[in-house]
Design a protein around this nucleic acid. Structure first.
Lengths: 334, 334
DNA sequence: CTGAAAGCGCTTACAG
DNA sequence: CTGAAAGCGCTTACAG
């Protein structure tokens, strides 16, 4: 920068103003400075900028899950890529870390913030009794919860419209003629699972269906298979099952096959979240398709706004779209 | 740090030496300083440290693939988590970005390096004619190729022992009695695909098998299904197929079913890389299991050594292990 | 073994 | 609209 100032015959501060597109320098001078900067192929030193501006130019994202369970995450790269579409325009980078559990995640927030490594964090998988919001508030670390507001409600959040999505699935199945619909849900601690369970009840009640309560699981294929077997063994078994992820849905189709039931003529199956998995089965699975990329972008946008001092507020994102495929059909005749 | 110096009654430089575990301060003083630092709950400001030490304390990782094809990446989180196990011990963080293509990836390397955002980068998916090594050398940006050395060989690399792995698969299948074995490979531009194709030929020649050459694909389920159909339609079709990923293997099992062939009694199937997918099929798939977490750790270790000035050298990592499951059996009697 | 000082490359009041 | 100066919080020669 000093070189630029010398060559352009101005002060360093003029250069700083020009390069940051701020008032305090005439248009002519700005252009001249920009020219020299390009000529010298100048790039800001991120550390120096961070130090003097007291802004890291970095946003943090932590994934807390045991190393063993790190598996298929179709959701993840889409989300990250959406976040970065926004961040990169704003000259911000994403610091990403995978840790074993929530304690490690919280320790990392403390560390990052005390080291001024990040300007804010995007927090995923909010839970019903979530210790993270309190920590974030205590630290004063700007944060956005991705997945829905927690009971404490002290940290702003963005979430997909699961309620609308669940309503659209139930509408669709009822429209096909189903009256006995089941819901095999994910981890009950997660806020969005709770939201889906609540809206399943609301949506089925609306039609006067006397369905079971949703069944909570750990999202694994084993759990999906086990709960499906259980449901289908009951008297008056469901004619349609909604699964909270694709892995369980595929496992459910397998169980139906073992029991001699055909999908979709004996049992309809809907997977929440689409992935290549849903297209590997025969028949292919009717699935709820989310625009995860856009969701990530919206989240990043919200966080940057927060960092820049905007008043925090919650955002409900778009309703996911139901993509009917071969795994759903009218129920068998009684 | 100034506060610490004042409280401990020493100079700022003494504090710096003590906190960085460097000689230049007596053990007593060091302990006293560390005590005060803890008391004040001091943490280094990463920007200040980066600026004066000319070290970002950050390593970069870029994933280049079109947003549409961002799908199931069982490999990815494991790799990243392994990297971080090493990086976090060395007080380094991972800057991670997803981009659309290799041009964007290279632009990002330029930007990161010119902004001093990273000390080095981990480069994935090396290709046969890869433009990235030349750029990295030109920039002087420390880098490690993950997946094998390119033809230019100017940037050090780490890779899994695909040759040993392929040999173990072929040994296993031949041991079961198979003589007609096929290999449905991944993207032919990737170095590791080339390595697998070459070692497939070597391993089958060793047994005097007159198998076909490997078939290259784009890793998609469509390609897996198409090539499987093609292979099984030939006279004297293979009795065993090795697939370069799990998605294609699952698609292949589907095709076999359509053609009325039973797995494993008519056709044996082996998937390269294990994931939950391999356990969702009936029968479950025999798969090549890698310790991707360890692989990521080794890669991070190598890169940190490079950054610290060690002489670059290539590393061949461990041989993956074959996990026999229900999808492999002796071939049908002629 | 320790201290005083300069410097890393920016930004930002403050004075003109 | 512009310039001279201080400062962000560290590290690192250099001198004692």
């Amino acid at each position: 920068m000093r070189d630029i100032a010398r060559r352009a015959g101005v002060s360093e501060s003029a250069v700083s103003f020009a390069l940051n597109n701020r008032p305090g320098v005439s248009e002519d001078t700005r252009q001249r400075i920009l020219g020299v900067a390009k000529e010298l192929s100048w790039h800001p030193n991120s550390a120096a900028r961070a130090l003097s501006a007291a802004r890291a130019g970095t946003v943090g994202l932590v994934f807390a899950r045991p190393a063993k369970t790190l598996g298929i995450e179709p959701f993840f790269l889409q989300l990250v890529s959406g976040m970065q579409a926004v961040l990169s325009v704003r000259a911000s980078a994403l610091l990403f870390q995978v840790v074993e559990n929530m304690a490690a995640e919280m320790a990392l927030y403390r560390q990052w913030w005390s080291e001024h490594r990040v300007d804010g964090v995007l927090v995923v998988d909010p839970r019903v009794d979530d210790p993270r919001p309190a920590l974030l508030v205590e630290l004063g670390l700007p944060a956005l919860l991705i997945g829905g507001p927690t009971s404490t409600g002290t940290v702003p959040s963005i979430w997909a419209d699961d309620t609308g999505a669940m309503a659209s699935i139930v509408d669709y199945l009822v429209g096909l003629g189903h009256r006995r619909i089941a819901h095999i849900a994910g981890l009950p601690e997660l806020i969005h699972t709770k939201r889906r369970i609540d809206s399943f009840r609301a949506a089925t009640r609306k039609y006067g269906l006397s369905t079971h309560d949703s069944v909570a699981t750990d999202y694994s294929d084993e759990a999906g298979a086990r709960e499906t077997r259980q449901l289908l063994a009951e008297p008056g078994p469901p004619t349609a099952i909604i699964y909270d992820n694709d892995v369980m849905a595929v496992a459910g189709v397998g169980v139906a096959g073992e029991l001699g039931l055909s999908v979709p003529s004996d049992l309809s199956v809907v997977a929440w979240d689409d992935s290549v998995l849903c297209r590997l089965t025969h028949p292919q699975l009717t699935a709820l398709v989310r625009d995860t990329h856009a969701f990530g972008s919206h989240a990043a946008q919200q966080l940057l706004a927060l960092i820049e001092g905007e008043a925090p507020h919650d955002v409900e994102d778009d309703v996911p779209r139901l993509e009917p495929r071969g795994s759903t059909a009218p129920p068998p005749l009684p």
